[in-house]
Simulated assay, not measured.
Amino acid sequence: MTITIASQSLSQLPETVAEIYQRFPSLETEALKFVQTPLRIIDKPEGVLYVTQKEYAVLKNDDENLSVIGTDDATTCHMVVLVNRKESSVCVAHIDSTDDLDEELTTMVLDIMGQQHAESDFHLELSIVGGYRDEMHKSEMLTLDLLQFYNDLPVNFQLKSLCVNSVNTRTSNGINWPIIYGVAVDLQSDFTISPAKFNLNVRGPCLSLRSSRFLSSQCSLHRVYHTGEGIFRINPFSYQYHSQMVDWIHKSDDFILNNFSTSPAVEPEHFPQEMKQVFQFVVHNPFPLASVFKFNKSVKYVPSPQGQWLKL
């Protein structure tokens, strides 16, 4: 099985994104339209499910409390959207690497497939958004790695959107910047994908804890929510505590950007402050398996109609 684009099979993956656009010009045309779509500002928490870096979630369109799912702050990272039309469900993931993640990425596909995988005509709709023409070419390598992974799976994928690399790049003062940093998927509008910005007040529970996963030595991709379960779940993990973190909290924004970002010149303006909040959290919880995940239990929340996350 393989990826198809406008009914054509991607039997052999090109070596560059430019070659993909050249071979399938409709992909580039649609991506150019997408980057010109008005940005959707998500500023109210009601009905919103936000996934951050190293996370994914699965929603069905009949979820009683949630109607929008999305992610934000992607520079070299990619945002992957998988739609299962037969089960009226969508998966959104924020992926920073494919290294050592074959099992997690495969589990994510199985989670969105549900019970349909045995049907011969079954396929998933695949959209990949994010990444830009960065100096180290990290974005392009991630794009190609993701396409190779999905192309090798025994699942039919229809690549509906590929908004990456040159199409998602603007230049200002000699620096390349991403055009789109975030996406939102509307469950009530046929899974329409929009460029989006999520304000900090709508990003769900325990954001500093979830963001601290980047300090873990273990490569990971975590499912945080599935409509079938109805629980926002943060599974136990540990991270590396450094005594210098106390000092990092008081360092300049430039220090934070240059030491903790893959793309320091183009990060969102709140990045340094968000990182300092993560360091502050870790300083207060140097051993999360003891203070946060007591008895090795997950931290769980349920959504309310008012947009609050209630701890179980």
Rank of each mutant, 00 (worst) to 15 (best):
L187D: 05
G174N: 02
R223W: 02
K311R: 09
H284A: 09
F279T: 09
D62R: 07
R40L: 07
H137D: 12
E55M: 10
I69E: 06
Y21I: 10
T4G: 04
F34S: 13
Y301M: 07
L101G: 07
V90Y: 04
I95V: 05
S139C: 05
S9I: 12
S189N: 09
Q306G: 13
S208P: 04
I175W: 04
V278P: 10
R40Y: 13
V202H: 14
F214S: 03
D254H: 05
R23I: 02
S243E: 02
R210A: 08
T262G: 03
Q115H: 10
K300P: 01
K276R: 13
K60L: 07
V35P: 13
S11F: 10
V83F: 07
S88C: 05
V92R: 01
K138N: 14
T171K: 15
T227H: 03
L207W: 00
Y21G: 13
F279H: 10
Q158E: 15
F279D: 14
F191C: 10
Q277T: 12
D62K: 07
S127V: 00
E28V: 06
F287L: 07
V81L: 03
S139Y: 04
W177I: 03
L32G: 12
K294C: 01
A290M: 04
D145P: 10
Q22R: 08
N156E: 13
R133H: 14
V302E: 06
H250Y: 06
L153H: 02
P154T: 15
E269K: 10
V129W: 03
R85I: 10
L27T: 12
Q308R: 15
Y150R: 14
N201A: 05
L187Q: 05
V109E: 00
V283Y: 00
Y21Q: 06
S298A: 15
H117K: 15
V90T: 09
S26R: 13
Q306E: 11
P25C: 09
Y241D: 00
R40Q: 11
E104L: 02
H270E: 08
N156V: 06
S161M: 13
Q22E: 11
Y241H: 00
N165A: 13
V155W: 03
S67M: 01
